[in-house]
Design a protein around this nucleic acid. Structure first.
Lengths: 200, 200
DNA sequence: GCCATCATGGACCGATCAGTCAAAGATACT
DNA sequence: AGTATCTTTGACTGATCGGTCCATGATGGC
């Protein structure tokens, strides 16, 4: 009963994304994806082309949606890397605390299952993690510290971000997650002042 | 063709543990578990009693095996919390670098899939994470810093540990993981000296 | 040495998986 | 208005899932 598409592709992608986000790739059945999006199998295959392809598009949608928020937070405090990282963690913590969205983070979830994903999807997850790392690195670029130290700090911030997502999946209370993020921020602050002082 | 057990229960548990560790609960089929252990379905059910029960016993075996190593590392430097945490991360990093064992960490893997596990297994994972946290906390107990700060530091160390496991699953090189651990150690050191100084 | 007991392997079960396909109907072009 | 093109629905396929069951045969107690 059609001729032209009967649904909003973006909205369907949002719903499918949440299913992968909540259950992970393996536990997200096409029936669950169909129920969440309100689409039959034919529509899913016609619009997105199979579970793998749908998953990849959900990864991209996730990266676009939240990557924009990360970018905004990280660039809102030019010249103040510590503030930028704090703002970055604030975005992450706000999303984790948002009850209208699954626990954790789709990227972290996918990273944990990376070895069981098909190689191209696994590579895609790696690329998204690297994008996040480069974004954080760019926010640190203003500092006069050793570039190599900045690389390490960026990796560190991404690592802590992943750990927040993972721990939130086990029901770790928001207050504990906030203190982890706060400690990571002091790491960034201390490391920057230390290496800057040495260099001056 | 038997009368008495034909296999080493512990060795079979080790093999099954690795399957769960590598693939996660959902992707670990009974066929894969049977192939890895060399056991038929009848033996698996007779000895362990179903996939859920087997999974729980694998969690316990993992916790016992590596928990002992954690305990040893954390208590090897009494009165020196920073050294203890460094030793703790050394154990984790050594296991991650060990090619004879799957990437990541079974607990982290299970934590990521926690919402899709049956409630009792999910609770079990939480309990194991809490045990790890208490172990780290005990190693920090000697410090004269604010006990609440020590609680936060213990959670922080556990969080970074989880992130190391998660990142290693995406193929993050050992050197980057080591720098993340090193930064976390400086955070512990700085926080301890800082709050101790304030308190004195 | 006989027999009750038990572990083993493999066939089997219903459920569910991802993916395919054809019938049916709605649209757009001519 | 007629027709070609497209989407949608839902049934269907073969594979695989976790779990059960039973015939087989080895064991240990008596």
């Amino acid at each position: 009963m059609s001729g032209r598409k009967q649904f909003d592709v973006g909205a369907a992608l949002d719903q499918a994304m949440r299913v992968f986000w909540q259950r992970g790739y393996a536990d997200a059945s096409l029936d669950a994806l169909g129920a969440a999006t309100g689409l039959g199998r034919g529509s899913l295959y016609g619009a997105f082309g199979g579970k793998d392809a749908l998953f990849r598009q959900c990864l991209d949608r996730y990266a676009t949606t939240y990557g924009a928020q990360y970018e905004q937070a990280l660039t809102a405090h030019p010249g103040d890397p510590v503030r930028a990282v704090e703002a970055f963690f604030d975005v992450v913590l706000a999303r984790i605390a948002d009850p209208s969205v699954p626990a954790g983070c789709l990227i972290a979830q996918s990273a944990a299952q990376s070895p069981t994903l098909k190689e191209d999807n696994s590579a895609h997850v790696r690329a998204l993690l690297d994008t996040q790392r480069r974004r954080v690195r760019a926010a640190l670029a203003g500092s006069s510290a050793d570039p190599h130290v900045l690389d390490e700090l960026a990796t560190f911030v991404v690592a802590v971000n992943q750990s927040l997502a993972l721990l939130s999946r086990t029901g770790t209370p928001d207050a504990e997650l906030r203190s982890v993020a706060r400690l990571a921020c002091t790491t960034v602050a201390d490391t920057l002042t230390r290496t800057t002082a040495v260099q001056n």
